[in-house]
């Protein structure tokens, strides 16, 4: 081995060991556990697919997976739709000296505790909350907003729009204005320039932010638990239910592996445009 390769290996080994110790080994253990089963309250190691069969075959369990995917896709699409114009406004319409302040304002809610923010939304959306009071002032409502999927999506979207704004802004700010000028010189209108030139060029930023949104959203337990009111169950909630009292770790592991498989699929679908160095 050359000195250069040895140096490269030495430099990369801490990160490699870290990944091995805190991801690869625990994941392998979880994968192995997912094929085990419970006898009474004892975990019995084996190679059974029963946990996967139940997770994907039992309607109530499958529904949890479907709920998670539906909520996550909705949140990702809505967040991108809101974050792109916000990032574009900050990048193109806000004077350079104010952009940092504008970004700071955009990410300010990050500074609040995630749990506190979720409980705050529950109060805001409640029957006697600010939103229903505002509707009531103009003779509308009250509407059932709290403890609904809408509340869960709103809580998530509030958080992820901030994240996406950052990744998309980072992409937009690097874009030379000459691309738009060139397109317009060649006769493209503003919309056409946006659709055929700007959007494709910002796709890496959008997809990177969307992928991170997808990963964080589908694995989140707190927001659906607090804002969803358990009106429907998501996969992380189902995983927690297996572990709390019953201690069915094999089933919880199988559900977690399925969750990781969904994330892997999302990665495969977005890998072409994914630029994790944008984060």
């Amino acid at each position: 081995m050359s000195d250069e390769r040895r140096l490269a290996l030495a430099l990369v080994s801490p990160a490699l060991l870290w990944t091995l110790a805190f991801f690869a080994v625990p994941f392998a253990a979880m994968l192995l556990l997912s094929f085990a089963h419970m006898e009474g309250r004892t975990v019995v190691q084996g190679l059974s697919l029963a946990n996967y069969a139940k997770a994907l075959g039992e309607p109530s369990h499958l529904k949890a997976l479907i709920n998670s995917v539906e909520i996550t896709v909705t949140v990702t699409v809505v967040s991108v739709a809101l974050a792109w114009p916000l990032a574009a406004t900050i990048a193109w319409s806000v004077p350079a000296r104010w952009q940092r302040a504008a970004l700071l304002m955009a990410v300010l809610p990050f500074w609040t505790s995630y749990v506190v923010r979720s409980y705050s939304w529950a109060l805001v959306l409640g029957k006697n909350g600010v939103v229903n009071q505002a509707f009531g002032a103009v003779g509308l409502g009250p509407f059932e907003l709290a403890s609904t999927r809408f509340a869960t999506v709103l809580g998530f979207t509030h958080f992820f729009v901030m994240l996406l704004t950052l990744t998309i802004y980072a992409n937009l700010i690097q874009l030379s204005p000459n691309y738009a000028r060139a397109a317009q010189d060649l006769g493209a209108g503003r919309l056409r320039t946006l659709w055929h030139v700007i959007l494709p060029l910002t796709l890496p930023g959008i997809v990177t932010g969307a992928f991170v949104t997808f990963v964080l959203c589908i694995g989140d337990y707190i927001t659906p638990q607090i804002l969803g009111g358990n009106t429907e169950l998501t996969l992380p909630q189902l995983i927690m239910l297996q572990m709390g009292r019953g201690g069915n770790f094999p089933m919880a592991s199988a559900l977690s592996v399925i969750l990781m498989a969904v994330v892997t699929l999302a990665y495969a679908a977005s890998a072409r445009w994914l630029r994790l160095d944008r984060l």
Partner: peptide, 9 residues
């Protein structure tokens, strides 16, 4: 637990 899950979903 299964009945509870069914109830929630």
């Amino acid at each position: 637990q299964d009945l509870w899950t069914e109830m929630l979903n």
